[in-house]
Nucleic acid binder design. Structure first.
Lengths: 348, 348
DNA sequence: TTTTAACACGAAAACGTTTTCGTGACATAT
DNA sequence: ATATGTCACGAAAACGTTTTCGTGTTAAAA
């Protein structure tokens, strides 16, 4: 169980100074060919690798980025991570993951744990609780210390940082228009309470689509789910609420849901009520996850290109980290990732 | 954009030495009450936090663990990460994630990137390619440098390290026995090629169940999928192979599949062939993911308790890291996580 | 022979901590 | 008055690097 070898040990062994070893390994012109060869051979033999921590301390740069997300057992977020990891690795960075579990305090703690030198910058999507509390002091403090943040998906719009967001509004609008073009006359919306920023935007897209086609929205057709309930109780409650929605409104022939699960539940309820999909009711969901693809019938859905979002966020962050041009004029951009409607069996 | 404050700056500001500041903050008895108060007040005012990198270098301990998995967009693995993160955080550790993407070289590169001081130990599940090549030099090298490894799920059995595995054999055996007890006479197995260790074990469980009930296994009933194909082509090819399986064997009344997707595909194919589930064919899958829960009919499945695996792996690793009792007698354990059969609609 | 230049290397500082040890200023005991 | 002890603090080393600057040796130029 030999420990990793250091410059000091090589120096002692070869009876030269640490500086010489360091320079020899970096092929400095200062060092004679003889010495270089000797040192390099020895280093290779003992599989020398510079200690990352020492380098980080010296360079005041860890080459690590922190990503904080509300939940990892979730296709959207894990795809984002995949994207982040992909470009981070390609550009020589590591990725350290923190989970807020949708809790404000865990988000704060996680950020504090990482902000003390462990990472060079953050990529994050804020927790629901933070969205409710609207307490953003931890973001401000982090940024005021010179640590850049890139927010994605769930962002706080009036914060001075780079952002990567989905075009939720137009994604939803297009989806609803698709239903309208397909002949739907009475389209229900299943969404979340308004404090969830993306739910709000998708709701707005629904409304704009109706307005564009001169259809008066009916409040009865809009179901706002309280998604703070936990998973188990949620499924039953959810299906119940949807059933009420169908029963209260005769002739629903289209459903737009702001996520996969709501859409699937809608399909399940509709079938139980004797309705056929897509003949009687057409359904479109949001988020191209594994459920949409493998449900029966498979679900037409609005894809967010999650991996692309992660890649973009990582690129933005690393660009900022490496452009230490310090253009005192801080310049922040918001990248909007276009959505794509993936048509499957749940629409005509 | 003020940088984070350091001991040195506090010392200069208060006109004391760095040592004094450090001791004052740690409430050393060496320092007078007056000085302590002054220093602590100042530190709080400027929100001083010790630099993690400096601490890591000094202590030769990063309090960070690396987890390397083949794929993150995968319920099983993301649940494991959640478990790891949970106990890691609770015990004061961070988690840094590397993805091998099922590739041997990426696995090696990732490990090398992290092994140079960035982390204290590894938790990992080996890539399929590594399983095929059976090249484990990177694991051996890492361990010979005194960096502990905990393997989970896909492990290499004759390696000297802690392991956390699923009881694949008995999980499969129980599932198949369940089908037998439910009256199935002709049970098909849909599995992977044998180099995937877990596929092999689950296959063995299938065989043992049959043997126990004195049923002669029929080679025709066993379908071994080559899962190196990519996802898109796989779906078609998969359903095709399963269709052949059904057509070549009249009277299949039970299916055991080694993962969710195979099970779902089997259900889909069966339905297309006019068979009802579970009346005509009963189906059981492996891995309790989101698909099993939300498919129609919902899928009876063998749960692996992925999160628990992650928690256990993290505990094992951190125990090893903190028990520097250096009981020269290295002691490695293999923890077996029991499976659980979750009964849903696809079985009677 | 003396001056200059090139060469090859080492000493030391720096990154931000913690910790061991030393030391000057007092107060107390002899 | 001297010896001893306590108190409060500082100097310095250490973790493992990189880099700047200095310096001794030798060879070439004057």
């Amino acid at each position: 169980m030999k420990r990793k070898i250091t410059l000091k040990q090589i120096a002692r062994e070869l009876e030269v100074s640490i500086s010489t070893v360091s320079k020899a390994l970096r092929n400095s012109a200062e060092i004679s060919e003889d010495t270089k060869q000797k040192v390099q051979a020895f280093a290779k033999l003992y599989n020398y690798r510079p200690n990352n921590i020492a380098l980080s301390l010296k360079n005041r740069k860890t080459n690590t980025i922190g990503i904080i997300i509300p939940e990892i057992v979730h296709h959207f977020f894990s795809k984002v991570i995949r994207g982040v990891e992909l470009v981070a690795n390609k550009r020589g960075y590591n990725v350290i993951v923190g989970l807020s579990n949708e809790s404000f305090s865990k988000e704060v703690i996680n950020m504090e744990m990482l902000a003390n030198g462990s990472i060079d910058g953050f990529i994050l999507s804020i927790s629901k609780e933070t969205q409710q509390l609207q307490d953003y002091h931890h973001f401000n403090e982090t940024m005021s210390q010179g640590m850049p943040i890139v927010m994605f998906d769930r962002v706080v719009s009036d914060m001075n940082c780079d952002k990567v967001i989905v075009d939720d509004l137009n994604g939803a609008k297009n989806a609803v228009e698709k239903l309208l073009r397909n002949g739907c006359k009475s389209i229900a919306l299943i969404t979340t309470k308004d404090y969830v920023s993306v739910g709000k935007l998708r709701t707005q897209g629904y409304l704009e689509a109706l307005e564009k086609h001169q259809i008066q929205p009916k409040a009865d057709l809009i179901l706002k789910i309280d998604d703070t309930l936990d998973y188990e109780t949620r499924l039953d409650a959810l299906e119940n609420e949807i059933k009420q929605l169908f029963k209260a409104n005769n002739g629903i022939d289209g459903v737009f849901a702001v996520n996969e699960l709501y859409a699937l539940s809608a399909m399940k309820v509709a079938r139980k009520l004797g309705l056929n999909i897509p003949e009687d009711v057409q359904v479109i969901g949001f988020t191209d996850g594994v459920l949409s693809k493998h449900s029966t019938p498979s679900l037409t859905t609005v894809s967010q290109h999650a991996q692309q979002m992660g890649e973009k966020a990582a690129d933005l962050l690393i660009n900022k980290l490496e452009n230490n041009i310090e253009t005192e004029e801080e310049y922040f951009q918001t990248v909007i990732i276009a959505t794509e409607l993936i048509e499957r069996e749940s629409t005509k």
